[in-house]
């Protein structure tokens, strides 16, 4: 067992993701040591800021129709142009950031928590293991996007339902990861010792298992966040995602799709934002993995 994994300093290292402003020297040092975390973190914070401060960044109502001003090319007035209903694409893209981030973060959070719960259950209660893992196998054997579309067909489109649908497709990944960690840790002498000493299961989980799953789950959650954003955009693009009344990147692209040849900017701007956001989250995830778990970095 590598000492880094058990190092309690891991938990303390996480907040460093947001660069500390006080000490310049340290920032430069951090950026040098973890370029991926630094670049990814910086870009992610920019995206988060543009979502939070969207109303202050020169936007107008992203849903205001103006058929008379439709399909304007990017200009000083319409920075990213207007779409076929005359809506301002810049405003829509910026407000769309909110939807994407919301979906990404919520899915990552829910999938991690639920997946961790399932993984722990499966790892500790061996009677349930076979059944739970077969269900997870079943879920994993349905291509995620198909499963999400099918789930979306169940319900009326809403951001909440999109989050639920994508979460369900992502849970098995976390559950398997956690179960794997639990199974390997159970073999460890100190855990065996704890069990032999009569320590109750919740305490074992709290003291030994959780600290060791936190690092891989954090890394996994970052990737889930990125992939959830792509799935949301793809769902909306196919027409089975976020309701079209809400500006999301996938919706803007879906609407611009018909005019891709003549007005490529309608698709390009949200595509650019989506790609950069996902890229920066993936960079962040890569960096975190390298920093938190060098062994895992080698494996994948």
């Amino acid at each position: 067992m590598s000492s880094t994994i058990l190092d309690p300093a891991i938990a303390a290292e996480l907040p460093d993701v947001l660069p500390a402003r006080k000490q310049r020297g340290k920032v430069a040092m951090f950026a040098y040591r973890h370029p991926s975390i630094f670049a990814g973190g910086l870009l992610v914070s920019l995206v988060v800021a543009s979502a939070v401060f969207a109303p202050l960044l020169g936007t107008v109502d992203p849903t205001a129709l103006a058929p008379a001003k439709r399909l304007r090319v990017p200009s000083e007035i319409y920075w990213f142009g207007t779409d076929m209903l005359g809506r301002d694409i810049y405003s829509r893209v910026l407000y769309g950031t909110r939807v994407s981030l919301q979906v990404g973060v919520m899915v990552a959070l829910f999938a991690s928590v639920i997946g961790m719960f399932i993984g722990l259950t499966s790892g500790f209660i061996r009677v349930l293991d076979t059944v739970v893992m077969r269900v997870m196998d079943g879920l994993m054997s349905i291509p995620g996007i198909l499963l999400a579309i099918a789930l979306m067909a169940l319900t009326r489109g809403s951001v909440g339902n999109v989050i639920i649908a994508i979460t369900i497709t992502e849970i098995p990944r976390v559950a398997r990861l956690v179960r794997g960690v639990v199974l390997s840790l159970r073999e460890q002498p100190y855990v065996e010792a704890a069990v032999a000493a009569g320590t109750r299961v919740p305490k074992i989980i709290w003291k030994h298992i959780l600290p060791n799953t936190l690092a891989p789950i954090t890394v996994q959650a970052t990737f889930i966040c990125a992939s959830a954003m792509i799935t949301e955009a793809t769902l909306s693009f196919i027409g089975a995602g976020t309701p079209p009344t809400i500006p999301s990147w996938g919706n803007i692209m879906a609407e611009g799709r018909a005019l891709w040849q003549v007005k490529p900017f309608i698709v390009l701007f949200p595509a650019m934002f989506l790609s950069i956001t996902v890229l920066s989250i993936n960079l962040l995830g890569d960096g975190l993995r390298d920093a938190l778990d060098p062994r895992m970095a080698k494996k994948i």
Partner: peptide
């Protein structure tokens, strides 16, 4: 590698179609 992992497949598809087909 990270870049291609981050761009949705339909965006790549349209870009390729626009450039190499149209």
């Amino acid at each position: 590698a990270v870049f291609f992992f981050s761009v949705p497949v339909f965006v790549v598809g349209y870009l390729l179609a626009y450039t190499f087909a149209l």
